[in-house]
Structures are given as C-alpha cells and as structure tokens.
C-alpha cells in the first residue's frame, strides 16, 4: 500500500506554473528581485499567472488542512504491549 502511494506520487507530472516561468523571463538583470514594470502584454500574463498561482496556493493550503486532520488508521499488526 505504501509502495503504491510512493509510486503514484513519483509518477505525478511536475506542474508548470506560469508564475515561475514568467518570473524567470521578466526578472531584470539589474539586481531587482521582482519585476515591477511591464508591457501591456506582460501585464495580462502577470494577472493570468497570479490567478493561477492563487488557485494553486489555495489548493495546497486545503490539502495541508486535510492532511493535518487525517483520521487514525487501525493497524492490523497485533501489538500486545500497546495496552501496557
């Protein structure tokens, strides 16, 4: 079961986020960490990338909340010492 989960996770294709590729393309070589001036076309791309990123961070936060509240799974392995 655990191996199956690991295998499934390993085979999930990496997510290409527009924000990351946009940051690579727009980050100025002058030492500024974030791009701040945009052409009209780049501005549209930045808005689209933000919408995508907000949805992604929202899904991640939701997944984090779900994982934090996973119900206990009873073990089938007999552990007689547990009661002690």
């Amino acid at each position: 079961m655990l191996e199956q989960l690991i295998h499934s996770l390993e085979n999930v294709p990496p997510l290409e986020l527009g924000a990351v590729s946009l940051l690579s393309g727009l980050r100025p070589p002058t030492g500024e960490w974030f791009p701040t001036t945009f052409t009209p076309e780049a501005k549209i791309q930045v808005i689209a990338a933000t919408v995508e990123l907000v949805a992604y961070t929202g899904r991640c936060a939701e997944m984090g909340r779900r994982l934090a509240h996973l119900p206990a799974i009873p073990l089938t392995v007999p552990l007689m010492e547990f009661a002690l």
């Binding site: 986020l17 946009l22 940051l23 974030f34 933000t50 990123l53 907000v54 961070t57």
Partner: peptide
C-alpha cells in the same frame, strides 16, 4: 545578487517561493 537570483530560479522549490512572494504574498 545575480548569482543568488539565478540560483533561486534554478531550484524548483526556491523558484516557487520566489513566485509566491512576487505574485501571491498574502498566501
């Protein structure tokens, strides 16, 4: 700074952190 900038973008996790700080800081 240029080296650090290139390094953060080369690493997927750091690139994601940079993108979030840039576009979705309230996350």
């Amino acid at each position: 700074i240029t080296f650090l900038s290139a390094a953060t973008l080369a690493d997927p996790f750091l690139a994601l952190c940079s993108a979030v700080a840039w576009l979705d800081p309230l996350a």
